[in-house]
Design a binder for these strands. Structure first.
Length: 872
RNA sequence: GCCCGGGUGGCGAAAUUGGUAGACGCAAGGGACUUAAAAUCCCUUGGAGGAAACUCCGUGCCGGUUCGAGUCCGGCCCUGGGCACCA
């Protein structure tokens, strides 16, 4: 064994050992229980960042821990390889996205290997591989057959200069990211997946996801957004029938049918057909509608925007009173939710109230105020106005409580054919068409005669040409005749291939299934997926709490309905790791632009007044930079730490140890160079402890019966550490405290100076256990130290230890004594001592006597094995 | 506006079921070794008082429950995140 710890050599040797033995390749033919440990697959951006390191280390710790516990652990890895950054890189580097992406994958795979993750690399997949994305296309066709996929016009962001569709993230302050031109909204035909058909199922099943963090479950439930209410039809008034030239009704959705008699107007969205019809011979209304449609795309702005509206001149009839109600166009009504129209009840809805105040519309109170809380509905708005209560002023429906009123009104409406109870979801169907090149082609052929024709299964996959280079204007596929020119599968006539590609969320909705059977040539998944699914532990960022996880749940249900899978839910347990933060330093450059400095390039010194001053070098001179606090590591503020440099300097084990130790894995992690040094120092100390021990020669077998008190004490610490570490990793996922416990153990070993044969035997056990317990976190150094300690079976094949109950036993233990709840002393009592004995010992303690003095003892509380509280 | 987290030393944090607040680590100060530096090792380190023994105070703020509260309850303040005119 070498005296000094050479991380690079140790890691090379360990990785070579695992590779040669194919240690992490798994199959389905084993008696051991399976465990599917999955980390979210990365986008191949070029290099790993610290978020990746943290994510994959958490997964790897669990995978290795469970492997040692006897599970058949699958830990796969792949690449979310389609998407916009490859096109952006292509524009600036003039390299096809495919080439850029594959280079990045190769580079990042090597980086991952250097971190020593226990991955079965035979199962690697990239979503840009035709063998993978052909099954996106295949399932899309099945969904088309079932009516789960359909075509409809949708709104996109359009850059008028580049003549191209922009993704939301390419729209900056309402302008195109490249051209700076004002972005327009355009309606084009797109494909949608009917996720709303699964809304109820997806919502209800959230209750079964016991292994998911509560906040993720809440976020998903809110996103699906189920509302119980009524749809109500308001028939056109005679003047409106005349104006439009036909009879009809305006449908609205409401959760407050009990307030129907308080409706004093109708409000419809700008895109509502009734608004458009009214605008045909009303130029002012047309202009207003145009203004609303043009308005801000950013939803947060919409929410705070001033309410605006304009009367259409049309009227509808109240279903019970037959009173005519004016129809308004209002900018606060969303076309995409409910019916795109609402009944305006200003007395009991804040938005309607605000609108009515502005437009001088009448306010009619139809819910009785709660005792004395208010006398009448008047400005300013009072949240009590919206409370559920007893109806008044509502004809035959007066005097009913909320639910009774809703039931009665809904029943009466239904009898007249003017409404019914209905559930409305906030969730909308998933638009998957992207007018982009680097994605999975949608397998549709457009024929002038036959319409949109699905590509026959036999012609799959529709291959994406990999040699195109986008130039920023439009979709290169739409300019590539070799791609879009084709013949109609039905009539054989000339036709045009669909040039839109799929949203990359499609790719990531089922990749974890394909890992189970990456070579399945005849089907999307095969019986091996039944073995591995569901994923037992999924690990990833909270930023995917809604979309990715919801889409994957939906996709799983669709595949189950098609008989491809047996599970309803893909992920049994979900772990969301925290972000990695670092300091942000900025400086106003001479050109007026804000520049950021990497924290590694910033030096701190004490200023004249003793406060910290941060400085960085600019053109050879020092300038004072502004410390903007902590923020997520990202390119835009230049505060990233390169994992590769970290591994090169300290080794993978130090990188892994620091990221697991510095913070609980589900909370934010603040980067600290000193903390990294501390992790490296600990590993050197561990190495040195084993080195010293091994240098002293062979170790005698442990003779437990002959141990003295100090030896038994160290052994007890060893086995307590085994128990704590097992619980911390296995149940609590609290890796930082598991590491702290091993550090304490090593500190105890350091204080243990016994060099007699049995002393050395106890030390041997202590060091071996420290190495074993730490091995999921720092596998390379532990691999080497395990060998050095003389074990012939490799660490990777050694089972996780169990605490020895006998070693944990004690004859006496220390008990805390309090007087009136304040700590006053400690007593040592035999473990078998009964309550009376413990009580007597406590009262006999000198410190206790001092505080009790001559005051009468009112009560003594004894918590066995822990504490005594004397109440005086 | 609504829904979730979080608030504990100089810093990252620990305290798992209501039972010794601050484990473990970082930083800082002191010391050992060394020609010196690095590395390593040892000691101190929540605040106040005290020569010491020890005492008092202390987990964002106010109040409550309890023999006992960082932990439970009520009200507030600050902060991070998510959603956002969803009828």
């Amino acid at each position: 064994m070498q005296e000094t710890y050479d991380a690079a050599a140790v890691e090379r040797a360990a990785q070579q050992y695992w590779d040669e033995r194919r240690a992490f390749e798994v199959n389905e033919h084993t008696e051991r229980p399976k465990f599917y440990c999955l980390s979210m697959l990365p986008y191949p951006s070029g290099r790993l960042h610290m978020g990746h390191v943290r994510n994959y280390t958490i997964g790897d710790v669990l995978a290795r821990f469970l492997r040692m516990q006897g599970y058949n652990v699958l830990q796969p890895m792949g690449w979310d390889a389609f998407g916009l950054p490859a096109e952006n890189a292509a524009i600036s580097n003039r390299v096809p996205p495919a080439q850029w992406t594959r280079q990045n994958i190769n580079y990042m795979r090597a980086q991952m290997k250097s971190l020593g993750f226990a991955i079965d690399w035979r199962r690697e997949i990239a979503s840009c591989d035709p063998d993978y994305y052909r099954w996106n296309q295949w399932l899309f066709l099945r969904m088309l057959e079932k009516g789960l996929a359909y075509r409809k016009t949708g709104v996109v962001n359009w850059d008028p200069l580049d003549q191209t569709v922009l993704a939301n993230e390419q729209v900056i302050d309402g302008r195109g990211w490249r051209t700076g031109a004002l972005v327009e909204k355009r309606e084009i035909p797109m494909y949608y997946l009917a996720i709303t058909r699964y809304a109820d199922e997806l919502l209800q099943a959230i209750d079964t996801l016991n292994g998911w963090p509560e906040r993720v479950r809440v976020m998903q439930a809110n996103w699906i957004g189920r509302s119980e209410g009524c749809e109500i039809a308001f028939r056109y008034a005679p003047d409106t029938v005349q104006a439009l030239g036909h009879d009809g009704a305006l449908k609205v959705f409401t959760t407050r049918a009990d307030t129907l008699f308080g409706a004093t107007f109708m409000a419809v969205a700008a895109e509502h057909p009734l608004a458009l019809a009214a605008a045909r011979d009303n130029a002012r209304l047309g202009a207003f509608i145009e203004e609303c449609r043009r308005g801000s795309v950013i939803e947060a702005e919409l929410a705070t925007q001033e309410k605006k509206g304009m009367a259409t001149g049309l009227h509808v009839l109240h279903p019970f009173s037959n009173t005519p109600l004016p129809v308004w166009v209002a900018n606060y009504v969303l076309m995409g939710y409910g019916e795109g129209a609402v009944m305006g009840v200003p007395a009991h809805d804040e938005r309607d109230f605000e609108f009515a105040q502005q437009q001088q519309l009448p306010v009619v109170m139809v819910v009785r105020p709660r005792d004395g809380s208010y006398a009448q509905v008047a400005a300013p708005w009072n949240p009590a106005y919206a409370h559920h209560g007893v109806t008044v002023n509502s004809g035959e429906f007066s005097g009913l409580t909320f639910q009774a009123a809703v039931d009665a009104i809904a029943a009466a409406l239904e009898q007249r054919g003017l409404g019914r109870k209905r559930v409305q979801f906030r969730l909308r169907d998933w638009g998957i068409s992207r007018q982009r090149y680097w994605g999975c082609p949608i397998p549709i052929i457009h024929c002038a005669r036959c319409g949109a024709v699905p590509v026959p299964d036999a012609d799959l996959p529709v291959l994406l040409p990999e040699n195109l280079v986008p130039d920023g204007s439009g979709n290169p596929l739409a300019k590539s005749a070799a791609f879009y020119e084709c013949s109609c599968p039905q009539c054989q006539g000339p036709a045009r291939r669909e040039t839109d590609t799929m949203d990359t969320f499609v790719d990531s909705s089922w990749y974890f299934m394909r890992y189970a059977c990456p070579d399945s040539a005849q089907s999307m998944v095969d019986e091996r997926a039944h073995y591995w699914l569901p994923v037992d532990q999924y690990i990833g960022g909270i930023e995917h709490a809604i979309l990715h996880l919801l889409y994957a749940r939906f996709w799983t249900r669709v595949m189950r309905a098609l008989g491809l899978l047996k599970v309803a839910e893909p992920f049994s347990n979900l772990f969301t790791q925290g972000m990695v933060l670092n300091h942000i330093y900025s400086y106003q450059a001479q050109d007026g632009r804000k520049r950021y400095f990497n924290p590694a390039d910033v030096a701190a010194r004490r200023g004249a007044d003793g406060s910290l001053v941060h400085e960085a070098l600019v053109d050879g001179g020092r300038v004072v930079v502004v410390h903007e606090g902590l923020g997520k590591m990202s390119k835009s503020v230049g505060n990233g730490v390169d994992p590769e440099a970290l591994v090169a300097r300290f080794g993978a084990d130090t990188a892994r140890l620091f990221t697991m130790f510095a913070a609980p894995p589900d909370q934010t992690l603040e980067w600290s160079d000193e903390g990294v040094l501390g992790a490296a120092r600990f590993l050197r100390r561990l190495w040195h402890a084993v080195y010293e021990h091994v240098q002293a020669g062979a170790v005698a077998p442990l003779e437990i019966a002959s141990l003295d008190a100090a030896q038994r004490q160290l052994r007890r610490t060893v086995h307590q550490t085994i128990a704590k570490t097992s619980d911390d990793i296995g149940r609590r996922r609290s890796f930082n405290t598991a590491i702290a416990a091993v550090m304490e153990l090593l500190n105890a070993v350091g204080r243990f100076a016994d060099t007699r044969p049995q002393g050395r035997a106890v030390r041997q056990e202590a060091l071996a256990m420290a190495v074993l317990l730490l091995s999921p976190i720092t596998p390379h150094i532990c691999h080497a130290l395990w060998q050095a300690l003389g074990f012939s079976v490799a660490l990777i094949d050694t089972p996780w230890p169990k605490p020895d109950a006998a070693a944990l036993e004690q004859e006496v233990h220390q008990i805390v004594v309090q007087v009136n709840g304040k700590l006053r002393g400690h007593i040592t009592v035999p473990v078998q001592a009964d309550e009376a004995a413990v009580r007597a010992a406590a009262l006999a303690d000198e410190h206790v006597k001092k505080f009790v003095a001559d005051k009468p003892v009112r009560r003594v509380i004894v918590v066995p094995g822990k504490l005594v509280n004397v109440v005086v």
